[in-house]
Amino acid sequence: HNGKLCKLKGIAPLQLGKCNITGWLLGNPECDSLLPARSWSYIVETPNSENGACYPGDLIDYEELREQLSSVSSLERFEIFPKESSWPNHTFNGVTVSCSHRGKSSFYRNLLWLTKKGDSYPKLTNSYVNNKGKEVLVLWGVHHPSSSDEQQSLYSNGNAYVSVASSNYNRRFTPEIAARPKVRDQHGRMNYYWTLLEPGDTIIFEATGNLIAPWYAFALSRGFESGIITSNASMHECNTKCQTPQGAINSNLPFQNIHPVTIGECPKYVRSTKLRMVTGLRNIPSIQYRGLFGAIAGFIEGGWTGMIDGWYGYHHQNEQGSGYAADQKSTQNAINGITNKVNSVIEKMNTQFTAVGKEFNNLEKRMENLNKKVDDGFLDIWTYNAELLVLLENERTLDFHDLNVKNLYEKVKSQLKNNAKEIGNGCFEFYHKCDNECMESVRNGTYDYPKYSEESKLNREKIDGVKLESMGVYQILAIYSTVASSLVLLVSLGAISFWMCSNGSLQCRICI
């Protein structure tokens, strides 16, 4: 991952900044910058967002509201009850120091605090018919004063009620008058409520006091790749198909172990950190130390980045220098085999997901714990399936590479015959000098055995068991695999060879 928040398929997220979902939807004055928000790819909250409900109280069923919003990608904020005409018999300019803005008392931008007009609070009834052709999110509140005197001074009615009804919602609220500790300079409380109004449905408000009335509502448009994440990451000019709280993932790998919460087309989250597919040879310690064997393909974004291909070729060293050249036929066979294998694994496992966190309130801790156990169970199954699949494929890959290298080895052996000696570690020792032209003939299969047989015969008789390297004779190393990324691999195959001279070296080696 890149540690950044990015656009998702070209669409920017909605960053709530210092506000949370509650503050944004109710219209906390400190969240005025969010009022123009219309569309987004996903919503970003920060872990310690401080601006929620400015007048103390709870947004009821907040967790369910977050779940609903996680599939919303755009909205239209509109005046559901026009301020100047909807409440002619009531005062609608209630403000509070708890919702101060720029040093002055204020109130929510989407709600109206209705109080008595003169000395009376006549029963009010108002309704709205949803003609938007889509779901409408309606929010309101109920004020709970701290004393009967406060109730009387604001609403005149000691036994007030609030009723809200639609086809799918029907509740009646009565204020709970009680002494409470002071929070944000208030002994009173406000509880906030919401409902989704279906197209064509009607919502009716009736009250004799204590109503925090809707002013603006939201017509919602769903987008199934949307979601809500909690993150401290910063926004950058970048684009992605998959976003996590820790950063964007741009990967076609089937798995990731970065974060379980994802938005967009994302690899499946697994616990494993070692889900690797081999593309090189079986481990040979001396070669492995030099980083030549054991190439791997990573299938977990965050564990290993991208696929690494092994390729086969020849390396030689003689009086004229040293050089490398790919054996294109065996390399292409290996590439085709690995590509098919990788595609097979991805096809089997690479279903892209959006995974969002589930919200539970403080009273639902047991449910949250149960949900976590269920999620953990599914996660263990996914991890096991992934590891088992790759384990089985790896064994076949190792066998496949062994065969490829063996074929190259036999190709060289059949040409050199007794003009060189096998020394048991995949290397041959020449009994004759071999210049670049000679080396090329070994690589392309045109090695002239009779041409060098007499010199080889004489050297075999002279050496008589002495280690060949100390006599200045020449080696050919018969097994060799270097490691390159897919891009470098293609470039390498396009070149005939490249040279690395070893000044004054008397050794001649050709490596497979």
Rank of each mutant, 00 (worst) to 15 (best):
C242S: 04
Q243K: 06
Q243P: 04
Q243Y: 06
T244L: 11
Q246T: 14
Q246C: 09
G247M: 09
A248V: 08
N250D: 13
P254D: 03
P254I: 09
F255P: 04
F255V: 08
N257W: 06
I258L: 10
H259G: 09
P260V: 04
I263C: 09
V270D: 01
K274G: 05
K274M: 11
M277C: 10
V278C: 14
I284M: 10
I284W: 00
L292G: 00
A295P: 03
I296S: 02
G302D: 06
G303F: 01
W304F: 06
G310F: 10
G310K: 05
W311L: 11
Y312I: 05
N318R: 04
N318Q: 06
G321V: 01
G321E: 05
S322W: 02
G323L: 07
Y324P: 01
A325T: 07
A325K: 02
Q328C: 01
Q328H: 15
S330A: 15
N333F: 10
I335H: 03
I335Y: 11
N336D: 11
I338L: 13
N343F: 03
V345M: 09
V345P: 00
I346H: 02
T351F: 05
T354H: 10
G357Y: 13
K358W: 12
E359F: 14
F360H: 07
E364D: 13
K365T: 09
K373L: 06
D376H: 06
G377H: 06
I381G: 03
V390F: 11
D399V: 09
D399T: 10
D402W: 05
N404H: 08
V405S: 09
N407W: 06
Y409R: 11
E410K: 03
K411D: 06
N419C: 15
E422K: 05
E422N: 13
G424N: 06
G426T: 06
G426Q: 13
C427A: 02
H432C: 13
K433Q: 07
K433P: 01
C434H: 02
S441D: 05
V442H: 05
V442D: 03
Y447G: 04
E455D: 14
N459T: 10
K462T: 13
G465T: 13
G465K: 04
Q475G: 15
I479F: 09
Y480M: 09
T482R: 01
V483Y: 00
A495C: 10
A495I: 02
W499P: 00
M500G: 13
M500Q: 06
M500C: 02
G504T: 05
R509L: 09
I510R: 01
I512H: 02
